[in-house]
């Protein structure tokens, strides 16, 4: 590990109790932490793909991608359906391998540490790299509160300490997801009773509660109406101060609105990556230009 690396590899190898960089994982420094700034106390980490390849059985869906996601930036992945966008980001937190017959090759560097290294604990990787899915899917048996607390409880961290500390963490995550004011009176109601947009922000809060350094979003707005979409986009803008965000989107206007950098994928290969402005106005590859101007896809 490089000395300047901000990642403490120790944390990634011992998920059950060793304190994270800010000492908050075991709740030791907590109760005061109720403000929105709580999660902001930590910076995002960079992610780099090196020769990443992903397979479903014998079919290769991601064909050797090298791509850097800079810390505390929003990087959008665009490309036509079936180009491997979702598969690629699912490799970043090693969710890809959960599908029977699926495997990945190459390296994913989380601040210089390869998450595919055999000595790395996959559970710890997923705590450091959160994920928000296309369909809002709060746990149906859990209340709003329990949904947000789920990551802390299921993760084997001893409930994050006392009830007071757990409450503080849940409130902090809900505030960060911009949902607190809407649900503070309904914390014990089922999470599935919220509106679609609220459910998706609940899912964002759920992933923020375990304090990830990177958040992957797989078309998080595609099931939402325009107003709910706008709320999520504002939220992403807000969140990038705290975490690194990688977002897959079918909506090019959305990419243009929220992303610092945009990557264009085609047939499992990276065609081009650059500042969003440049990708949309002055792409260097003709295929990118055809795609962003709507000639195909």
């Amino acid at each position: 590990m490089e000395p300047e690396s901000r990642l403490q590899s120790e944390r990634l190898q011992q998920p059950d109790g060793s304190p994270g960089p800010t000492g908050t994982v075991d709740g030791s420094a907590l109760p005061a932490e109720t403000s929105t700034e709580a999660i902001g106390s930590k910076q995002g980490l960079s992610v780099a793909l090196r020769g990443l390849r992903a397979f479903y059985g014998d079919s290769e869906q991601v064909r050797g991608v090298d791509l850097d996601f800079r810390a505390n930036e929003v990087t959008a992945i665009i490309g036509p359906s079936g180009c491997g966008k979702s598969t690629m980001i699912r490799c970043i937190n090693r969710m890809h391998e959960e599908i029977p017959g699926a495997r990945a090759a190459g390296e994913v560097l989380l601040d210089e540490m390869n998450v595919y290294d055999p000595s790395v604990d996959v559970v710890a990787v997923r705590r450091a790299i959160g994920m928000v899915f296309q369909k809002p899917n709060p746990f149906p048996t859990m209340s709003v509160f329990d949904n947000v607390a789920a990551g802390l409880r299921l993760g084997g961290i001893r409930s994050g300490g006392s009830k007071v500390e757990l409450r503080a963490k849940v409130e902090s995550a809900l505030r960060s997801a911009g949902l607190w004011d809407e649900v503070r009176e309904r914390l014990q109601e089922p999470g599935s009773g919220l509106s679609g947009g609220q459910q998706q922000r609940l899912c964002i809060a759920r992933s923020l509660a375990v304090k990830p350094e990177v958040v992957l979003m797989d078309e998080p707005c595609s099931a939402l109406d325009p107003i709910a979409t706008l709320r999520i986009e504002e939220l992403i803008e807000e969140l990038k101060r705290r975490v690194t965000i990688v977002i897959v989107t079918h909506n090019m206007q959305q990419a243009a609105r929220i992303a610092d950098r945009t990557a264009f994928l085609l047939g499992g290969e990276l065609v081009e990556v650059g500042p969003t402005q440049q990708i949309f106005t002055n792409p260097s590859d003709p295929r990118t230009e055809e795609y962003v101007t709507g000639k195909f896809g």
Partner: peptide, 26 residues
């Protein structure tokens, strides 16, 4: 739904906790 298992796994829950905490209660 598989989405629930995936969400729980993506939160960093070990598989046995996903089963006892999410799948069986659901």
């Amino acid at each position: 739904p598989d989405g629930l298992r995936e969400s729980a796994l993506a939160l960093g829950a070990p598989r046995w906790r996903v089963i006892f905490g999410v799948v069986l209660p659901t």
